[in-house]
Amino acid sequence: MALKTFIEAIRETMAEEMRRDEAVIIMGEDVGLKGGVFLATDGLFGEFGGDRVIDTPLTESQIIGTSIGAAMNGLRPIAEIQFADFIHPAFNQLVSEAARMRYRSNNGFGVPMTVRAPYGGGVHGALYHSQSVEAFFAHVPGLKVVIPSTPYDAAGLLRSSVRDDDPVLFFEHKKMYRSVRGDVPGGDYLVPLGKAAITHPGTQITVIAYGLMAHYALEAADVVAEEGISVEVVDLRTLRPLDKETVLSSVKKTGKCLVVYEDNRFLGYGAEICSIVAEEAFDYLDGPVTRIAGPDVPGVPYNHVLEDWFMVNPEKIADGIRKLAAY
């Protein structure tokens, strides 16, 4: 076991995958000599060369579109979008092309491609370096969406993503890159896509979260534990395919459900979780299915007071838990 930061786990896993499989290449902006703006690909250009670690022009649609083509002709590209906020120029390639290729060709073609992008706020990134974009893509059948919260999961899920035969969007909360550390065993272990984890067992309230919010949910669970509220935290890890079984069995056990997400509340990813719980665990519910989520403004504002106002944090989650516990 080695203690690694979140970003070290990601970087080393990419290097291992590239050593294991010649078909794995990396494409993105500044991923070469510089090693990426967050240094996620630091050192890989030196080890694998410019044919396999490709600095692209500032062209997100090209990064995704050519990754799709390369994937159809025998490669397994890892595309890096410098910030999730800048994935939108590639929306068409992701949604109209990558997601539909297998379905529209009746399994003639598949797109084994992983798209990595740092997302999320709380880093003084303002409107265009803080976005959560998972809801746009989790909506689309044909795309898998992964958001790990620990170095262990990041490594295991990234391996599964690179080896998957379909397009996977792998979103990394940028605030976690260096602030989150954890044990990462050596060896070629996989964390399967589509499996959630119960990271804090409890009996009275289920809190469902992912990414940075999975950490904040744990902190909140500790806070309210001192007040006698027993919380079960479910870390989704993969948003789609969703591990409905783990979600529903936890809620059926606790009878109460709070969904936490950093993205804007309205039609955020957590809204679908609420809907599933309401639809399929109704008989077990002991209170409303509730959410703690970002406010509905077009982006995270810059000034630190405004940013704090925007961000979901452990206190806001603890508050939501207390209100739900009172039912």
Partner: peptide, 28 residues
Amino acid sequence: VSLSSPVATQMLHAVGIALAAKIRKTGQ
């Protein structure tokens, strides 16, 4: 290559196929 309806998206797929051909040295 399978075609979609939004025009010109296939451009990048063909370029990506050419990129893979170059990297894999297939002569395609």
